[in-house]
Design a protein around this nucleic acid. Structure first.
Lengths: 339, 339
DNA sequence: TTGAAAGCGTTACCAT
DNA sequence: ATGGTAACGCTTTCAA
């Protein structure tokens, strides 16, 4: 059933030449090693004919690099991460890298386990949305000379490449947009988190409301609650307790989705009763009636920078470690929900 | 910078024993090989102490299996595939397998290329949503003894495991639901495709309308058009040309999304003017006002069966190849859009 | 009870 | 110009 795999040795034997020669030709070193045109041709033809493909496994073992990058995110089924996955895939494959994915659920124990598992697989690099308390694990990776790029959030105090967006500024602007649109009491629904992206969004919101001395309330939902769908109830309760809110800013799209459901249940009209803006744009925000204003993260640029940054570290020729710390701007799309 | 990796050899040297002994202990064969409790303990302690992890790469090379499964889908950013990705991930990791993903864009050339690339990586198995014309590539994989499971669609004439859903029956039922709800002229919007899942959905629709002799029209959008967003226009045009449609059945959720936009633009009321049902449920269908009726595919079961089936093939102990051909039932959720 | 050594498929150094 | 061979890190057979 299973066909015997042909190896470089078989080729050498079949052609009555040495392994070395075949290897050189295979690696395009025929010229350099001054192997005759004729032999080169012959070998290439034969290789073509039998459809030989070198074993990446053996190469990895020999070269010490596996050409595999781990894409470790909070949840690969989340549309933001899935989209990034799709975008980096292309660039990775183009550069000869494969991508293994895994989801941490924002659980640091799970993340640490995953990291050790991958280390024994000799992967070359990690693209990570760090969970809380991942400092040491990341430091170790760096210490072992692995390529690492963080994204979506970064870890203060760790000198490491990252690609994030302007969370604070965008949150500030979105909030200001609500206030300038006439909101006198604006609510901020976010996830309880000490991670940079959430902290910054909160800061942006607070900056805006304080600046204009606007009445406001904040709801922080626990992360696990989102998975367990009690987020919806929390939001409903929040909206009931703050019936006079005339503006709502959600720090993530999934919170906004829950919020929209709650608003519908309370028969609140958007934007008449309450204006709505969400962080992290989504296809549906355009589809929903009314269309929902949102801050769009530049997915393409994020993916570009992510790959650029990790390839830079993976590049043999670049001397010394080159860290890139990139913060990309977002775009606020004002739609019906906040006009 | 880069720490030297400790190998089994280093351990042997450090402890003044042979590599073999260490290997035996590492692989839990201490008992079997009757290695003294004392030595075993010593080795284990040392391993613990220096935090040694065996190289999976070397093991793979030696054992001839990499413990890697390729998850090759149409588009990993599509929520259906991303959700499945999330679900199989867990099961795979639990069984010591890692998952590499890739997207084919339903392009058979790309798919073939990806398959050859992965073969040289010595992956153990493939979970694939086959593109058209992938027959030979799949047959080769099977022939080489690799584990293969198709899903979402299968390839008639190829004896291979697959996990699909009851496309025809569900499409039939959904259409019948519209007709029984009073629709006299129902439209079917689908993707132009010769693949089983789409063919079956079309069959189901046709069966239902013919059975009840109901007036109907069909729009087949080209696959590439969806990516290029001209699908939206096609659908708009279709709706204009068939202004008397009072029922609409979309064969996929992304077509339904486009359709909803078009209906909104034409100021058609759902379900008053036209009732709507879509294949492939989505979080958003619950959120949309009115809520959209949809056929939900059993994601969990699909993922379960996918892993079960591939692990069965991967299992050393199971004699002979065991193909599983699984067809799972869906669930029609009747919501406001078709009541 | 433990060890030596072959072999998995490569690459690259050192010979010739 | 081409070939022999050690090494990458591991498993496993055979020998002691």
């Amino acid at each position: 059933m299973a066909k015997k795999k042909t190896s470089i040795k078989d080729i050498a034997k079949a052609l009555g030449i040495s392994i070395t020669t075949v290897s050189f030709i295979l690696n395009g070193k025929a010229r350099e090693k001054r192997i005759s045109e004729e032999l080169t041709r012959k070998v290439q033809d034969y290789i073509q004919e039998i459809g030989y493909k070198p074993s990446h496994l053996a190469q990895s073992l020999r070269l010490g690099k596996s050409k595999v990058i781990v894409f470790m995110v909070e949840d690969i089924s989340n549309s933001f991460f899935a989209s990034i996955a799709r975008l980096i895939e292309e660039k990775a494959y183009k550069n000869g890298y494969k991508i293994i994915y895994c989801s941490t659920d924002n659980d640091s124990e799970k993340a640490k386990e995953l990291i050790t598992t991958f280390k024994m697989r000799n992967v070359d690099g990690f693209i990570i949305t760090p969970t809380p308390n991942l400092d040491n694990a990341i430091l170790e990776l760096l210490d072992e000379g692995l390529a690492v790029v963080l994204f979506d959030r970064w870890i203060p105090g760790i000198d490491c490449s990252y690609v994030v967006v302007e969370n604070e500024i965008s949150a500030y602007e979105a909030t200001k947009h609500l206030i300038q649109g006439g909101c006198n009491n604006v609510g901020f629904v976010t996830v309880e988190s000490s991670q940079t992206q959430m902290v910054d969004r909160l800061k942006g919101f607070q900056h805006a409301v304080k600046e204009s001395n606007t009445k406001h309330s904040i709801l922080e939902v626990k992360f696990h609650a989102i998975a367990e769908q009690e987020a919806s109830e929390k939001i409903l309760e929040f909206l009931k307790n703050h019936a006079d809110l005339d503006g709502l800013f959600f720090s993530t799209n999934y919170l906004a989705f829950e919020g929209l459901q709650s608003l519908a249940r309370l028969h609140k009209q958007i934007p008449k009763d309450v204006k709505v803006v969400s962080f992290d744009d989504h296809y549906f925000f355009n589809l929903y009636q009314p269309q929902i204003s949102a801050i769009e993260q530049p997915l393409e640029s994020i993916a570009d920078k992510l790959m650029e940054s990790i390839l830079l570290q993976l590049d043999e020729n670049s001397l010394g470690r080159k860290f890139q710390k990139i913060t990309l701007p977002n775009e606020l799309h004002v739609r019906q929900s906040s006009r």
